[in-house]
Amino acid sequence: MAANALEAGDGQSLNDELAARQGDPAALERLYQRVRAEGNEVLFREALRQCLLAHPGDVLYEAWAYRLGVDVGRGGEPRPRRPWPLLIGMSVVLGLVSALLAGGRPPVPDPGEASPWFWVGWGPLVATGLMAYLAWHERGRRVIRYVLAAGLLGLVALYTGITLGDRADDAAILAALHLPFLSWAVVGAALCLGYPDPARQAYAYLVKSVEVVLTGGIFFGAGMMFVGLTYGIFAVIGVELPEEDLTWVAAWAVGALPLLAAGSVYDASVPPAEQDARTGLTRTVRILARLLLPLALGVLILYVLWFLPVYFRKPFEERDVLIVYNLTILA
């Protein structure tokens, strides 16, 4: 304890001495040589790091940090804030439009199964939502790129709908499979063109796109597990929820989740090549838990306060109900 206190005290005094020598290279060199001779170079490094965080941009402190290999990092900077109300609101709207386009049919890129409105419009719809979010962040001369790109996608969707909308042959299947990729490429072009070194930006966009897809898959899988568990816990007590609603839920999800996933892992305030590595899948798990918490609490309250008292004897009489109860507790 005494050693720790002495170390903390020395570190604090070094902070004061470093601050007193700000802008004086000779005095700072003498202080460093003295501390080094005393064997307290580690304390000097920590004090230097704290001074640099307190005085960002100080050239002398930065030179010393470079000399000693002090990793200041970005720990002192606030994490980029996401406009979550905007993201969630736009995602809900995109999901509703996607569900309306699907019209109760499977939300898949198959002209033989899906509504023509859906397989033609889903890719351009999601891409337009992404570009609207990016344009809201930039709010400058680059916004015209997103407007032109959205207009181009609208024309492509219109042409595809007119020429292939009522067909289910190979040409329609190819169009249904390629429209989402075309939409993704148009978003990338609108985002990356205009930045210095567009090839580097495009590569970063490609890498980040993979992370967005994985994040969206995690969101979708977790959401479907939640919906399946909700259906299951009601089914075992004889309450049948309409299975047709699952199609509407899936159609809503494939429209809403792409923007939500992109907003979770992509910082729209900086170019693709300057993205913060901290905003990865580890962060996604925390965000996912926060998003599902209100829904899970709502179902849990309804289940505990209403259905459990009514069907209290069910777990004692039917093993399936007991298993579902246990799985619900674990979830």
Score class of each variant (00 low, 15 high):
292 L>Q: 08
198 P>Y: 04
320 D>T: 15
7 E>K: 15
254 V>E: 03
262 A>S: 12
27 A>C: 03
197 D>P: 04
78 P>S: 11
37 A>K: 13
316 F>G: 15
274 E>C: 05
314 K>V: 15
226 F>H: 10
319 R>N: 14
131 M>P: 05
198 P>D: 03
210 V>I: 11
186 V>A: 11
271 P>H: 01
260 L>P: 02
61 Y>V: 01
126 V>Q: 08
107 P>Y: 02
321 V>P: 00
322 L>T: 10
311 Y>T: 04
71 D>Y: 00
85 P>Q: 02
315 P>M: 06
28 L>I: 00
15 N>A: 12
151 G>F: 13
272 P>D: 00
188 G>D: 04
241 L>H: 06
161 G>A: 12
193 L>M: 11
317 E>M: 13
256 A>T: 04
67 R>Q: 08
290 R>K: 12
17 E>Q: 14
265 V>A: 05
186 V>D: 07
100 L>P: 05
329 I>E: 09
185 A>W: 11
70 V>T: 00
108 V>N: 01
198 P>M: 04
15 N>L: 13
17 E>H: 10
22 Q>T: 06
205 Y>L: 05
74 R>D: 12
144 I>R: 14
230 T>N: 07
194 G>E: 01
137 H>W: 09
17 E>S: 12
234 F>G: 01
180 P>Y: 08
310 V>M: 07
56 P>I: 06
125 L>G: 08
298 G>Y: 04
318 E>N: 12
194 G>D: 04
278 R>P: 00
55 H>F: 07
311 Y>K: 02
43 L>M: 13
35 V>G: 04
173 I>P: 10
243 E>S: 15
261 A>R: 04
24 D>P: 00
254 V>Y: 02
238 G>N: 02
119 W>K: 06
329 I>W: 11
183 S>N: 10
178 H>S: 14
287 I>Q: 04
163 T>L: 13
238 G>T: 00
197 D>N: 11
247 T>A: 05
157 A>I: 13
84 W>M: 03
107 P>D: 03
191 L>K: 11
309 P>V: 03
220 F>S: 12
223 G>I: 08
50 Q>N: 13
82 R>W: 07
160 T>P: 07
150 A>Y: 09
130 L>H: 06
313 R>D: 15
158 L>A: 15
202 A>T: 11
91 S>E: 02
262 A>V: 11
177 L>R: 15
269 S>H: 07
158 L>V: 15
27 A>F: 01
157 A>N: 13
4 N>C: 12
189 A>E: 09
288 L>H: 01
227 V>M: 10
237 I>N: 01
183 S>A: 15
139 R>L: 02
104 G>H: 01
324 V>Y: 06
201 Q>F: 02
78 P>A: 12
149 A>N: 08
227 V>G: 06
130 L>M: 13
313 R>Q: 14
306 W>D: 07
160 T>E: 13
201 Q>W: 00
142 R>V: 04
271 P>A: 01
34 R>Q: 15
158 L>Q: 14
3 A>T: 15
